[in-house]
Write a protein that binds this DNA or RNA. Structure first.
Length: 157
DNA sequence: AATACGATTTTCT
DNA sequence: GAAAATCGTATTA
């Protein structure tokens, strides 16, 4: 995916994501219905949902389902491709640029201000990218409910 | 109006 | 391996 925030272009290849269903998924923010924060999740697919985690980190989601379903994919990690110097500057270090949800959000320069934006509006884009050799499904991380659902997907290459 | 709690990361021991 | 940092949101009174 590619972002153009503050005049800086950064792109990376997504390698780790997690799926979140809406009303069927106790671990989802949208589980208890529509609220102001989760509003973007109930939009049609192609909308970005960003939230502040632990008051410290910005985590990025992409809505995938039809309107009202609140299906989304949490971007957990990726490998930098373009604008690496920008990411290094934003992260304040040269390693571990986007190998985690909060890190990825910070590296791409996304904040809650960008929540609800549509992909393709000029700020955020999804590219075709290189297909992974394989995909592993594992249990999701950092949640306390519905841990038994293997909805974390990792590119094996 | 008040309070408890994260879809986390970093740093220290 | 453990703990702190930090604030918006949801829940409760």
């Amino acid at each position: 995916m590619t972002t153009m925030i503050g005049g800086e272009v950064t792109s990376l290849r997504l390698t780790e994501v997690e799926a979140y269903m809406g009303s069927d998924d106790p671990a989802s923010h949208a589980y208890r219905g529509r609220t102001r924060r989760t509003e973007p999740m109930f939009e049609a697919g192609g909308v970005v949902y960003v939230y502040l985690s632990y008051g410290v980190h910005f985590c990025v989601n992409i809505v995938t389902g039809p309107p009202g379903e609140a299906q989304a994919v949490l971007l957990r990690g990726g490998t930098p491709i373009e604008g690496v110097n920008v990411m290094e500057h934003r992260r304040g270090r040269s390693d571990h640029l986007a190998n985690g949800p909060g890190k990825l959000g910070q590296a791409l320069g996304l904040t809650t201000e960008h929540s609800g934006l549509r992909i393709g509006d000029g700020l955020i884009q999804l590219d075709r990218g290189t297909p992974p050799a394989g995909i592993d499904a594992t249990p999701r991380i950092g949640i306390s409910k519905a841990i038994d659902r293997p909805w974390r997907f990792v590119a094996s290459e």
